[in-house]
Design a binder for these strands. Structure first.
Length: 198
DNA sequence: ACATTAACTGTTA
DNA sequence: TAACAGTTAATGT
C-alpha cells in the first residue's frame, strides 16, 4: 500500500524515527496505526520456538507495514524491525479507516493491494513448501523482481545479503551460496563480484 | 561485516 | 547408499 505523503501529513500522521534493530511493532502488540516507510528498510519477521528467525519480507521506502492487520481485531503475528535507520509515517488506525471512507480511490487501492499481497503470499508458500532450495530461492527472487519494471534477464540486482536470503527462504547461508552457484551454472542468474543479477 | 570453503554429520530419496 | 542439507570452523574479501 502507498498513500501520498501530503495526504498522510494533512491527515495528521506522525513521523517516527528508528535505529537499526529497533522494533516498529512486535508480535502480540495490537495494531493501532497504519505505518508507511518514509526512508530506510524494515524486515518483517518471526522467531520460532528454537530462536530461529524467519523473515517474511524486507520492505523499503513508500511501502506499508502490517496494513493487512488493520481490518481485524487480532494481535500482530509478526514483528517489524528496522534494518537501517528509518523514518516511518504513523497514522492512527481510526484516522486511516476514515481516510478510506473519505477517498474511494484509496479504498479501492487498498483492496487491490491486499489482493496483490495474497496472490504473492500464495506463490511464496508454494515455493517455500518445496524441499528444493533452488525452487525456494527462485520463488523469492521472482517475487522481488516483480516490483522491478524491466524484466530483462539479469537486469535486476538482488541487494540482499546471503544471510537475508537464507532467513527469507528458511535455508542455511551455506546452502544459499551453493545453490546460487548452481543456479549461475544453469544460467538462471549471474554473479559478478558477489553481486547477484537476475 | 559479509562471503566462501572445507571437512564432517545426519537424513532421506 | 549416494546425494545433499545442515553444522562447525577456519579463511578470504
Amino acid at each position: 500500500m502507498k498513500i501520498e505523503e501530503n495526504i498522510l501529513l494533512s491527515s495528521g500522521a506522525d513521523i517516527k524515527s528508528y535505529n537499526p534493530k529497533e522494533f516498529i511493532f512486535r508480535e502480540e502488540d495490537s495494531p493501532h496505526c497504519y505505518f508507511q516507510i518514509a526512508s530506510g528498510t524494515v524486515k518483517i519477521n518471526h522467531y520460532n520456538e528454537d530462536g530461529g528467525e524467519f523473515i517474511h519480507n524486507i520492505l523499503g521506502e513508500k511501502q506499508s507495514l502490517g496494513d493487512s492487520m488493520l481490518f481485524l481485531d487480532k494481535k500482530y503475528p509478526m514483528n517489524a524491525v528496522a534494518l537501517t535507520p528509518c523514518t516511518v509515517f504513523c497514522l492512527p488506525k481510526k484516522t486511516f479507516l476514515n481516510l478510506l471512507d473519505q477517498y474511494p480511490d484509496i479504498s479501492k487501492q487498498m483492496n487491490s493491494c491486499l489482493s496483490h499481497h495474497l496472490y504473492f503470499k500464495t506463490l511464496m508458500i508454494q515455493n517455500m513448501a518445496s524441499n528444493n532450495p533452488a525452487v525456494r530461492i527462485k520463488g523469492l527472487i521472482d517475487y522481488l523482481k516483480s516490483f522491478h519494471d524491466c524484466d530483462d534477464q539479469f537486469s535486476f540486482q538482488i541487494k540482499l545479503t546471503r544471510q537475508h536470503i537464507a532467513d527469507l527462504t528458511g535455508l542455511r547461508v551455506e546452502t544459499v551460496i551453493r545453490t546460487l552457484k548452481k543456479m549461475e551454472k544453469e544460467n538462471i542468474l549471474k554473479i559478478e563480484n558477489r553481486h547477484i543479477f537476475y
